[in-house]
């Protein structure tokens, strides 16, 4: 491997080991919390909410919950790692190394994808074993899982770079990420919403990630899977560009 990419690889491994060292908090706890959603909402709303034909509500719910967990955990991984590194000062070690802004970005985002997928797989295992979940197009499942985790990992990096303290990061997470994920069609098909709310939902980029991901399981979706792919890629490109600008300018990490 080229020595440049060895540096990027080392940083990626460091980020993996960082979240693995607290795996109960970073993987097992989100899996259990998400399964509780499945248990409670699945039971209570099983007969209340109309979904795609031939599916139980729990079956419909599982891909949405998996994607929600992927999004939230990919975001948490980069944002918490960056802010902790800034607070403890150990980001300096990376900044003093020959790792470029692009390599730093790739390493952090790749680790966020791994954590997001680790949590997602944990939930999916229960879904497949317990709820007879089927895979219509596993390729789409993987594409949306990876791209969405990358996008959220990138968003987490922006939040981590711009935040000076945990309080600011919590505000970003609770007032932006949480509402957008909850209102992205995780718990319902947007066709079940009144007309205006259907239109509002279509301005939420997370909706396309959930919808495209769900298409991979059921072969059915609220909007075209290609539209969902285009929106996801578009936001990934925008967020990557913002990250690279922030990292190259050294905003809040170099003076």
């Amino acid at each position: 491997m080229n020595s440049r990419w060895l540096g990027c690889w080392a940083l990626f491994i460091k980020e993996i080991r960082r979240f693995y060292s607290v795996v109960v908090q970073t993987v097992f706890a989100p899996v259990v919390a998400t399964l509780l959603y499945l248990l409670v909402f699945g039971q209570v709303l099983e007969t209340q909410i109309e979904t795609y034909s031939g599916l139980t509500y729990s079956q419909f719910l599982i891909p949405g919950l998996v994607m929600m967990a992927i999004l939230q955990n990919a975001f948490s991984n980069t944002s918490s790692s960056l802010i902790q590194s800034k607070m403890h000062g150990n980001l300096t070690f990376v900044l003093l190394s020959p790792i470029s802004s692009f390599e730093l970005y790739i390493a952090f985002v790749a680790a966020a994808i791994v954590r997001g997928l680790a949590v997602g797989v944990g939930i999916l295992v229960v879904g497949v074993l317990g709820f007879d979940l089927t895979w219509n197009a596993p390729g789409w499942v993987l594409v949306f899982a990876v791209l969405s985790a990358a996008m959220m990992g990138g968003l987490g990096m922006i939040a981590g770079i711009l935040s000076d303290k945990y309080d600011q990061l919590a505000a970003f997470q609770n007032f932006i990420i949480m509402p957008l994920t909850f209102l992205s069609g995780v718990f319902y098909s947007i066709h079940a919403l009144p007309g205006m709310w259907q239109q509002v939902s279509q301005f939420n980029p997370f909706f396309y990630m959930v919808d495209g991901f769900r298409y991979g399981f059921f072969g059915q979706s609220d909007v075209s899977v290609y539209l969902s792919l285009a929106v996801t890629v578009f936001f990934l490109v925008i967020i990557s560009a913002i990250n690279l600008i922030l990292l190259r300018k050294g905003v809040k990490i170099r003076e």
Binding site: S3, R4, L6, G7, W9, A10, L11, I13, K14, R17, F93, V94, S97, P98, I99
Partner: peptide, 12 residues
């Protein structure tokens, strides 16, 4: 030791 190994890795 882990920090030193990681830092070495950043330099390839």
């Amino acid at each position: 030791r882990e920090l030193l190994v990681l830092q070495s890795g950043y330099f390839g």
